[in-house]
Design a binder for these strands. Structure first.
Lengths: 152, 152
DNA sequence: TCCTTAATGTAGCCTATGCTACATTCTGCA
DNA sequence: TGCAGAATGTAGCATAGGCTACATTAAGGA
């Protein structure tokens, strides 16, 4: 008795075999990646190089967590991180950093334009920026452009 | 030799002892919780009760994942879920659902008011709503109120 | 009433993200 | 040059959130 054979259907999420952790999950992973890449770009810009210690201070996690995330970033092709050396962005990583930074700035400027304080705008932008679609980003830009015209 | 004793500092994240998984992580957990509570409230409203299967269909994960998340929600005091029965919201859960729903609607309306399509507004709102501070939400409301006045 | 089937529960595995504790390598200064 | 201390690496643990496979319970129709 018991289970006769296949339950023919089991459940629904069938898409990929193993690569199927749903939208939210995948997006969360992406968020973290983006935050790291952005922070790395900032560090390189500010101090010439990105070190694990500095990253961990900036992001607020231990150096161990940073190291492992960097490993994943390296596997994904965003960074190169030779043992005991600094972290370097690949071209792919640089491109991602640039687009993240641009998006971040637009979101902050947009929030700010609504009368939201500098501080809150920055804090909220960090959470919001990862969930803004191209269409919404365009709308933000459009809104900013309008404001700019009016101000002229 | 080797490690003399305590490395006096180890690393930085010292706040709580164990309860210290950083901001991003904690917020992500909250997001999932909120999504579930909202979905449960919707299901109860629409069909009289929230069942695990329906939730899993709605959220897009297997019933196993739903079950475990519900366990956590139960431990956190948001729901009650007797074995083989439906899922019930506690007063705390109901309150959370209400405030999430309100916030969600404001974000959607706001995005829509910027000329963003219904569909994108809804999709983006799902990601954005969890990262909107009280101040920003107020600004959104304010913006909507202004528009409403102009339209009159 | 029984028995099939849908819903629910449980066991066990995986990855991502955190952590502490400890080991190793680099680096700068005495 | 050598060595102390900082930076980096590694081992091992925890939790959240995914999954498949299988077991158990509930519910409805023959």
């Amino acid at each position: 008795m018991s289970h006769n054979s296949e339950q023919e259907d089991h459940d629904l999420p069938v898409e990929g075999n193993s690569v199927s952790f749903s939208k939210t999950r995948r997006e969360h992973s992406t968020e973290i990646m983006e935050d790291y890449v952005e922070a790395i770009a900032d560090l390189i810009f500010e101090s010439g190089e990105a070190r694990v210690v500095e990253l961990s201070r900036r992001i607020g996690v231990t150096h161990v967590t940073v190291t492992r995330t960097i490993d994943r970033l390296e596997k994904a092709g965003y960074v190169i991180c030779p043992p005991y050396r600094a972290i370097f962005l690949t071209e792919k990583g640089n491109a991602l950093a640039r687009s993240c930074k641009e998006r971040h700035q637009i979101v902050v400027a947009f929030l700010h334009s609504l009368g939201i304080s500098e501080q809150t705008a920055n804090l909220d932008a960090e959470g919001i920026e990862h969930h803004v679609s191209t269409e919404t980003l365009q709308a933000f830009k459009h809104h900013l452009a309008l404001l700019h015209k009016v101000t002229l």
